[in-house]
Structure formats: C-alpha cells, structure tokens
Design a protein around this nucleic acid. Sequence first.
DNA 1: GATCCACCTG
DNA 2: CAGGTGGATC
Length: 640
Amino acid sequence: MQQMYASSNTFLDCRSPEHVQPLKHDSCALCTITDGLDITVLLNNDDKLTSPLGSPYTMGSSRAELDGADPAPQNRDPLHLLSAPPPLLSPTATPCGPKDWPLRTARHAKRARVENIIRDMAGSSFSPSLEPDTDGAPEDGQGDKGPREWPPDGVQAQRAGQSSVVGCWSSEDPAIKNQLQNMKCQPLLKFRRSGGLPPEDWERDSDQPKEETPLEETHSFGSDSPSKDPYDIFTDPHCGDGFDVPLNRKACGRKKVRVQTASSSPGTPDTANALMADILKYELSRAVSMSVDSIFKIMPRLEPHPPAAAPAVVVMERSAVTGLPHESPLSRPRQGTPPGTSLYGETVCGSTLPEVQTEALSLVVQRAPRLRPYAICRPPHQHHGEQEFPSSHRSEPQGSEGNKGGAADPVRRDKNPCEGLKQEVLATAGAPGSKVRCKVNSRSVRGARHFALDPGFLGDLCVPMDVQTRADGPQSMLMSTLFSLNDGLTTSHLKKAKLMFFYTRYPNSLVLKTFFHDVQFTRCITSQLIKWFSNFREFYYIQMEKQARQAVAEGVAHTGALTVGRESELFRTLNMHYNKASDFQVPERFLEVAEMTLREFYVAVSLGKDCDPSWKKPIYKVICKLDSNVPEEFKAHYPD
DNA sequence: GATCCACCTG
DNA sequence: CAGGTGGATC
C-alpha cells in the first residue's frame, strides 16, 4: 500500500497496464419465463467499479489517506435464477366436428377477442392454449367457403411477441364485422326479447324457433351444462364476471382453469344483477367500440391539406371491445404519398414507416425540408464565411426508430385507443395528478393542428360529456390545450441542440427558451430539451471516462500528455455524435473543455476515486463551470 | 412537492 | 433518444 501511495503521489509517472484491473461489473439476471408471465429478477444492481489500480479507495480520500484503503476487490454474488412456474395453459388443439362457417367465424372472432383480452391481462408473453381452429380445415368442406378460417399470421405473430395488430383481421372486413356485430348484439337482443328474464329462462321463454346460432349455443351464463361447448363459454365475455378456460379442446373443456371467479350462478337472485351488469358492460364497451370505429372513419375527413397535414393522433389499431386489431385507413400508405414521406407529411429519412404504428414514436418530429434552409454564422472566432446547417438531418432517429421496435411498453401499446386518447387529452388539459408524457406535443399535435374539428369529433374521441360541454366550448378547450401547443421539437431542433452542446453542457431553462424561442414552451418541451442535454452529457462523459481509462491503462505519464485535438480519436467520436455531418466548425473552447474533462477523469481514475459511487460528481461540478455563451446566431434558426 | 440530475434500460 | 427511477436541492 505504501507503494501504491507513492504511486499515487507520482501517479503520472509509473502507471502501467498491469496495475489496471479489468472492470468488474455486477450482473443482473434476467429471468424470462416464456410460458407464463415474464419475471424479471434483478439480483444485484450494484454498479460499483473496481479501481483500475486494483484498490478501492473511498471518495474524498486524499492521497495520504490511501494507506488505509482496503485493497480487497469487491466480489459479487453469483447469479440466481428462478424456476419457471408451469404454463398457465397447456396448448392443445383438437379438431371438432364440422360446422357451418358463420358459426366458426363467430367463434374465431370471439376467441380472438378473448384471447386478446387474456393476453392483455397476462402480459405480452402470454400464450393461450387457443390454437387455430382445425375444424376450419378444408377437409370439412367448408374451408373454401369461409372467407377466413383463422388468421394464423396475425395470431402467431402476436404469440411471437410481435405487434398485436399486424396481420390480423380488419374490422372493415364485412363478413367479420357482421359476425362481430351479430355476436355483440345477440345477448342484448335476447335479453330484450325475453322481456328482461334471466338468461336461463331465455330458451324456454323464447318464442323464436330454435336456431343454431353462436349465441344460442354459447350463452350458458354460468351454467355448466355439458351440452354447451365450454370453449364457447370461454370465448364468451358475457358469461359472468369470470370465465373458464378449457385446457383440452378435445375433451371439450371439461378440464378448466378458473381465470376469474364468477359472481353469479344460475337460479340465484344475483343472476339478474349480474346480467344487468353484463349488459351494462356490453353496452359501454359497444359504445366505446363504435366511437373508436368512427374515429377511424373520421380521420380522412380531417385532412384539409393532404398529404402534408394528416391527423396525427397516435392510432392504436385495436378495437376497444373485441380486442381484435383492426386496420385503420391511416395505417395504409396513402396514394399519392411520395416515397420517403411519412403519413404526417414528414420526411422519414428514406425509410418507410411500418404500415401500422405499433411502437412508441420518437418525440422528435422530422420536419419537411424547408424551402430556405436556415443558416447560422460561424462562431465569432471563425472567419470562414457562413456556416449552414444541413437542410435536413437524414440520419436522425425518426424513421429508424419507427422500425426499431422493442422499446415500447406492451401495456401502453395495447392500451385501449380511445382510452389512450382520452387520457392524453385530459392530461394535456391539465387534469390534476396526471403525469403525462409529451407525445402529443410533437408529432401528433403538429399533424393535428391544422384541421378543423368536426362537430362530432369530440364525441367520437370519447371526450367525456362534461369536458365537451364546458362553457368555453369543446373546440376552444381542445385547441387551447392539445392543438395550441403548436410546434414540437423537430430533428432540426435536435441538431441545433447538439451544436449548442459544443458551447454549453448545462444550459438553464432561460438559455433553452432563448435559443428555442420558436417552440411553444411547455413543461414537456422543457423537459425534453433538458433530457436531450442530459443524454448529450451522458455520451460525453462516457467517452471521457473511456478515454481516460484507456490513457491510464496505456500508462500515460502525466496529464500534459492528454490533449484533445481535432485529429484525436476522442474528438472524432464526439464530433460524429454532435456534428455528424461535420459541417459545423467546432469552437476551440470545446476542445479545451474536453481536454480538461479528460484530465479530470484521468486524475480521478488514477487516484482510484472511481470506486466511490459518486466519484464523478466533483468532475461534473468542474465541467459545469466551463460553459460558454451560445453565439447569438443560434437564435435565428427559425425565422417564423 | 417540484425540479433537476445522473443512472440504468430498452 | 426516451422512459423510469432515485437522490439531491430548494
């Protein structure tokens, strides 16, 4: 240790690679149980680093204090894995007897609906036992008659964890729609026909001739009659508060897994109440579904300036009631939309957006190329004439992120579209306690800001009546909340922010407002800008630390040997990140700051201060004082 | 409680 | 780059 102390005192002289131990990171075990729910087990999240000198020093210790440091490395516990629970449902599919295709189709529809519901309940990894119905196979002679037996692509894509909306049925398919409609209306019609009698009395009360309709067959409402196909019980959302999931289709579901406890049983006084509740639920769901459908129908009407200003509400293509994904007209490429142009009339970096929006979108909006590319002057110290930003920023994330996928929260993705819209509208309107992200601020609002509100639009948007009927009027309210947040941040803003980073690493809100004055500042916009700079700093410090450690490892003798020139690897990396096109002359001051930062990291690492979790804080404190004023030219990016 | 920040993660 | 989270600060 004495040797180390001496080494520390003269750390610039005798650093050698053998003194540097590889970093030891703790591990976390990610245990995914694919047959059931995903379970992520974080066993050890300690992220301390071992000193490259091999000795963990405490933060703040002076070099003279290093004698008492404990050189013992920090060992980590091994990983532990949880064993997966048995699958919730064992997949079994057995052909049933041939039936007429409408019945099958209705069953398919219902099954798909319930499957979606269950999937939503259980999480994205849930894989229900409902295999594609083999009774729809061509050998029953019906296969060529039915329009669609089962959407294996869509369903299996869902099971593979992919988007739940790709490749599935379209609600616009008239056959499917009719079946769904019949399916949805039947219980209510029966209830009405029966004069309000409990469902168990429907059959004996009904004067209608017996028909083998899906509803006749499936509505047992808790009845466990063996004559009923339990598979239909499963697929019937109206059979009480809970439903049974058959484990074995061949056995026609005699073996069941209780998913949710039913609250009513036949013949009890609760049955009528349960039925009423069911009907109420059904009606509500149906109303929501119709509203969602009408939104999709309305959308094309809200395009006064096609193709540049398409409505940009984030459309979740799933029926609120059925859970069946359906394809909105918006999800299809519009005719006449030029290649490389998004549905919102914005350039998509040469890549194409997926047909259906299934993933979280970037908050950054790609603006259409401006007719007059804005230009900035070089920083005062430069005399090379006018320096222009590129007119577009083709490599920015908009297009690529749209296809990247994976980061979106499945819960959010599967959210009821109407509910999602409503929540965002209300949250944007300042609903108390709502913490909303600013998705609507950029893409959606920009796309929506130009169209006139259809009188029925609010109702179709599922905006609650109390909101719609406020004294200031629904339009003004929405316009003053959603649509008045005119400009979101664009890729040009992002590029500008990156260039500003060459001057300021810690811009305050005043600076941001000054240099992004063309943006309607909201808390979200501010947060987003702050987040940008936070990300910039993160990348910056990571590169600095990496370079510093490399210097230590390479035995760099003293800080004077650490320079950051325009030809250095470090600068190239940074320049590539903040100034990809290299069309901006990076101010000399930035090189100086980078050099100082690098040396700070080098010293800290050399002293072994990096064993302290907060060893970077003193560095941050130093660097934040090195900010420069951003040139005035940066204010003039957006003349409008 | 609000805000800012770093850190981690996808 | 964005979302979530926890700590620090006011």
